[in-house]
């Protein structure tokens, strides 16, 4: 397969970036999008050019490190996957692919397609945990948990922190990310004791870091590689009201 790639290149955080167009031929339809970029980079190295920088690690859709906004969609034109799981057979031979970094004030570009997502870590540090120390814990079966609740918590806990929700949202809102963690812990008895402080602190951190406001467009849900539902956002809202009013 053959592709025309229009890729965002930016030297560093301070530099002004621009789109650069590359042509790439002999791409196997079995290879993943990132393997296609590897192939492009090989050709760049051949020419002593700097390869395109992009974040990636596990390449099996779970670490959440890969990003890329491809033709207007985070993680490209397939649903329920990350960019590393996107295969070239999803495109047509000869397609032009526009590849951009996640765009958000809270995710500044570091270089080329690499952005800084430490904002997510900072939000988690505000309360995305149950405050227990190691050791001195009662038996795991001491607290029975309804299977439905546990399953719902697991649905939310699957978030991989990739930031596609922020990238997809026209408002660059982080509500889906925050709501996934708040929901995961609010649904379990272990997490419910600190529910009030957690939701307060995480939401105010989210606001402080410069993410936009949710306007319920549902783009986050449509693009989330783990298909996390916006019902979690409604739960976050509920948790928030309860915490403020209670």
């Amino acid at each position: 397969m053959k592709f025309k790639l229009k890729i965002w290149r930016q030297e560093n955080a301070q530099a002004k970036g621009k789109f650069v167009t590359y042509e790439l031929d002999n791409v196997s339809d079995d290879c993943s999008f990132l393997e296609m970029l590897d192939q492009l980079n090989e050709t760049l190295v051949d020419k002593f050019d700097k390869p395109v920088c992009f974040d990636h690690d596990c390449r099996e859709g779970i670490c959440g490190m890969c990003s890329l906004y491809i033709n207007g969609r985070p993680h490209g034109n397939d649903s329920g996957i990350t960019t590393c799981q996107l295969h070239m057979r999803r495109f047509k031979d000869g397609d032009t692919l526009v590849v951009e970094p996640w765009r958000a004030k809270a995710f500044p570009v570091i270089k080329d397609l690499v952005v800084d997502r430490t904002a997510f870590d900072k939000i988690i540090q505000e309360g995305g945990y149950v405050s227990v120390n190691t050791g001195g814990i009662p038996d795991a079966n001491a607290i029975p948990i309804k299977k439905v609740d546990s399953d719902l918590a697991m649905d939310a806990a699957q978030c991989i922190g990739c930031g596609a929700c922020v990238a997809a949202c026209k408002n660059a809102s982080a509500m889906l990310f925050v709501s996934a963690k708040v929901s995961h812990l609010a649904l379990l008895p272990q997490g419910s004791l600190e529910a009030k402080e957690r939701v307060d602190n995480m939401v105010s951190k989210m606001d402080e870091l410069g993410f936009g406001y949710c306007s319920n467009t549902g783009a986050c849900e449509a693009e989330c590689p783990k298909e996390i539902k916006i019902s979690n956002i409604a739960r976050l809202n509920r948790e928030f009201f309860v915490s403020k009013l209670g």
Binding site: K6, W8, Y69, R73, K105, N171, A219
Partner: peptide, 17 residues
């Protein structure tokens, strides 16, 4: 919300919403 995304995308919002 506009401040939250100072640089906009070249190709915008093809997501299902």
């Amino acid at each position: 919300n506009r401040i939250s995304r100072p640089i906009s995308y070249n190709k915008t919002y093809a997501s299902q919403t």
